[in-house]
């Protein structure tokens, strides 16, 4: 593992409009070969962060550098050149429903390279073998279970051996077995291909068992960061509540409201 920085996020702000700030002054550094988790509750801005890294949205201020290049300053062609070195696993896979498993994995190779069909075949089978689905290459996406579909999507996103992999909620909606399969695949592929992987998730247990470093985001700011062990033993109330999934804490159970008695109209009677 080299210690070279691959992704640098500096004072990043993002808002969809003037009122709703999604990210407020986020700073992160990610090294080559690391497996990093960005965790946080629903709506905390972590998926937006992933979009910004992939160049699908522009920050309001601040910047994201991937291997020295500022993402939002890239033109269309330069961005596409950068994206060839990135892979992204979407929450629901995003497999092309009109193509077979084989053609899905072969898609990028056919679009971006002039490799002969025989070599593409070998490469596709190798990628499918890596996710354990070599035997399913002739199936259509509709014939796959949720866990299998995600593994195929994973094979497709690593088709061109990316240097940076983005995982958007890779554990959502999976049964426990598929979940561990995906988790261990992410760890193994990150190490084998020497890529940097960023996982956005709110699945605590699986994530802490595989990643190298954790950023915890809350309301658009980094609430805490550190190694999985540091997070587990953290005394910060929010971190403690999040990691252990407690019902009440710094994140209150109740949505802000006026006093309960007042809402029920009891105030007048008893005063």
């Amino acid at each position: 593992m080299t210690s070279e920085t691959l992704v640098e996020i500096s004072d990043l702000n993002f808002a969809y409009d003037d009122k709703r700030a999604i990210l407020k002054g986020v700073n992160m550094t990610m090294k080559r070969g690391q497996l990093i988790a960005i965790m946080g509750g629903s709506g905390s801005g972590k998926t937006t962060l992933l979009k910004l890294i992939g160049g699908a949205a522009k920050p309001s201020s601040g910047y994201i550098k991937v291997s020295g290049q500022i993402i939002h300053a890239l033109g269309h062609n330069a961005l596409y050149a950068m994206r060839r070195k990135m892979g992204k696993l979407f929450q629901f896979g995003g497999l092309f429903t009109d193509l077979s498993v084989f053609d899905n994995v072969a898609f990028q190779m056919r679009e971006h390279t002039d490799l002969p069909e025989s070599m593409i075949r070998d490469l596709v089978l190798m990628k499918l073998h890596a996710v354990g689905l070599r035997g399913a290459h002739h199936l259509m996406p509709a014939e796959l279970s949720g866990g299998m579909a995600r593994r195929v999507a994973l094979a497709r996103s690593i088709a061109l051996d990316p240097m940076l992999m983005l995982f958007d909620e890779p554990f959502t909606g999976l049964d426990p077995i598929s979940l561990s399969v995906i988790g261990s695949l992410i760890r193994r592929l990150t190490d084998d291909l020497g890529m940097t992987s960023i996982i956005v998730t709110h699945d605590v247990q699986e994530t802490l068992s595989i990643v190298d470093y954790v950023y915890l985001i809350s309301n658009g700011v980094i609430a805490a960061h550190g190694s999985p062990d540091e997070m587990k033993s953290s005394e910060k109330p929010f971190v403690h509540q999040f990691i252990h999934g407690e019902v009440d804490g710094p994140v209150p159970f109740h949505y802000p409201a006026q006093a309960y008695r007042q809402d029920l109209g009891l105030e007048d009677i008893f005063v």
Partner: peptide, 22 residues
């Protein structure tokens, strides 16, 4: 619309293939 809803267009865009062109 379905390709957009099921993230197929976004996935294609991330694979550096322009969905409008393709």
């Amino acid at each position: 619309g379905l390709m957009k809803a099921t993230e197929q267009l976004a996935a294609m865009d991330m694979m550096a293939v322009d969905p409008v062109a393709r």
